[in-house]
Design a protein around this nucleic acid. Structure first.
Lengths: 212, 212
DNA sequence: ACATTTTTTATTGTTACAATAATCAAATGG
DNA sequence: CCATTTGATTATTGTAACAATAAAAAATGT
């Protein structure tokens, strides 16, 4: 091994490599790390937060490196399946980033709100008649035409040519009535009689809104 | 070493003490800990969180004030696309039949509710403190961590280790306060003082729920 | 009986380490 | 001469280990 020059050149690459080696700031966070002692119950919470933080850092840096470069990224599939991980935490123990027990479910608002896409549509709430059911003006009500309405359901009904959203109830005589959810007295129940045109168009199975 | 009785008693206290020693769960968090590697820039943030967590654990009994928070739900990956008819006519007053030539928009709840996936997660509302803002128990609040909170926004904040959802307001002295949206008097504003640990984690930009 | 000392064990911040990953230089091969 | 492979080198990263401290109970002293 000592006389490396007596015969043919070595078959293997060798020698010093000054200046080589992994570069600083090439880790997950693009910055140095340190260790921290944490309660075990919060470890996964914190890991989740750190993952989100790392993702954000990397996204920012890649955006910064983007200038001048054309994109060549390719979207996987046009209509991708919704796959939102949902981390459930029990109580208020948690972090900005979720995941307490790391009991992991997947929640997709679309899936959560919609059972059958083909029979579902949305309606923007206008009045305050269902205020106490949590339907405020501007809310989008999710209406499913395929659902069978039962007493107590919030339904989209047409009464004498007018659409309304109310809670379905029954009169003593068996005819339906439509109840507002507003105790102010400004809205009165709609009593359906035989002469009235009445049709239930669908059941309000959910709602959503934007605050900001 | 077995015959501890053979000669004179030792001058110093000695001998085995079975059952002695510090008890388990007597640390800051009342639970075991582990080490975690974190980016240095987040160390103080995490320490702040851990202090609040420890404080909360130690004061385990007192406040059941965490009304407003249920579980965290996060949505990391790709969101599904959806296009469903939105009838934006008025519901309470004369609504065109869905079979009509209705004005119709295509609306995707996911797109409507979420601006930035990577900074958004969901929380299940628990108390009734935000009832009059239309947030009922069981509703999913859409929280965006990347939004800057302004006075009047509904925010997810941590106060002394407890998460809460309230409306952000300001005191005369400039310090923040958190207002419930419930006039019943059961919920009182949270006045933030200098000694309190306070952090805003995100802005509630929307909500959604299922009725059925 | 009460206070003090001793022993024991958990906590806790930090350091150390080993396995991995990233990166460049040299070697190799066409 | 250029592209690819190999090897060396250094950062990253999860975990183990350590030492100093804290807490709790037994043993001892007064």
């Amino acid at each position: 091994m000592e006389n490396e020059r007596d015969n043919q050149a070595p078959k293997k690459a060798g020698g010093r490599r000054p200046g080589s080696g992994r570069k600083l700031g090439t880790g997950n966070y693009l910055e140095p790390t340190t260790v921290l002692r944490v309660p075990v119950s919060q470890k996964l919470v914190l890991i989740d937060f750190l993952e989100a933080y790392a993702k954000k850092q990397r996204a920012q840096s890649s955006r910064a490196n983007l200038d001048g470069i054309g994109e060549f990224e390719q979207l996987p599939e046009a209509l991708s399946k919704l796959d939102i991980s949902l981390y459930q935490s029990k109580v208020a123990a948690g972090f900005p980033s979720p995941a307490d027990d790391h009991v992991e479910k997947r929640l997709d608002p679309n899936e959560y709100l919609i059972d059958q896409e083909e029979s579902t549509f949305f309606i923007t709430i206008q009045g305050e008649s269902m205020l106490e059911a949590g339907l405020l003006p501007g809310d989008k009500a999710v209406v499913d035409k395929s659902k069978t309405a039962e007493v107590g359901d919030i339904v989209l009904a047409m009464v004498d040519g007018e659409f309304t959203i109310k809670t379905l109830a029954k009169q003593k005589d068996g005819n339906p009535k439509l109840l507002p959810a507003n105790s102010s007295g400004k809205y009165t129940p709609i009593i359906i009689t035989g002469e009235m045109q009445f049709e239930i168009f669908g059941v309000v199975i959910g709602s959503f809104r934007r605050f900001k």
